[in-house]
Write a protein that binds this DNA or RNA. Sequence first.
DNA 1: TGATCATATTCCGATATAGGAAAACGTCAA
DNA 2: TTGACGTTTTCCTATATCGGAATATGATCA
Lengths: 113, 113
Amino acid sequence: MARAATTSDAFNAIAEPQRRDILVLLRTGERPVTDVAQVLGMSQSQASKHLRVLREVGLVRVRGAGKQRLYGLDARGLRPVHEWTGGFERFWNERFDRLDAYVQDLEQARQEE
Amino acid sequence: MARAATTSDAFNAIAEPQRRDILVLLRTGERPVTDVAQVLGMSQSQASKHLRVLREVGLVRVRGAGKQRLYGLDARGLRPVHEWTGGFERFWNERFDRLDAYVQDLEQARQEE
DNA sequence: TGATCATATTCCGATATAGGAAAACGTCAA
DNA sequence: TTGACGTTTTCCTATATCGGAATATGATCA
């Protein structure tokens, strides 16, 4: 089995830095593909492909505006990610005091030998 | 170029559901590989491989305890993910009232034709 | 209809996975 | 040292990427 599809999930979709950049850019408002590509310094086809992935996961919405297609943010899919990581909030503080203490104990024990 | 390595980043590491399960499990305390494998219903070698990835990204720490190796959580690497997604917090509420409104406008316009 | 702009898709290559099976390694105890 | 246990590491296969280049599709306007 290979790695899960990037379109399987918001977790997979945002694993790619360029897609994260796109999402951040879209916070400023809707943009056509060309804009995204130019602002973020990627090729048009790359931008289009990344936007497709984001669309398939539902992080982005499109609407036609004349010749253009305007991509807009739909951040709701990021909420589960935020909440999942939030479940570790107390561990990245508290829990680590113990590990640090443990390491200090080790070093102290070593010195006392 | 292929997809970024799972070990490049916490974002990539947690794209895999089984690795997320492992992290959740480790919130209950340190565990040897066998435990992880058994509790989560995966093979020992799979558990070991996933733990390796998590270790390389720094989300997990190991310490030898006799024959066993105890894996413990180091959640600090999840903080950036939490904070990045947090940057979209107001968009998954507010911003969408507008889009919904936009869609309603469309439908209303259609009925008035 | 035909030209043109904006975007999407298809080919292609190189790479990196996840999982299963089997084999290698490390550590302890007798 | 030998054995047994716990864990990690190869091989292997199937699959899915990301990126560039080129091509195809779509929409608008004259």
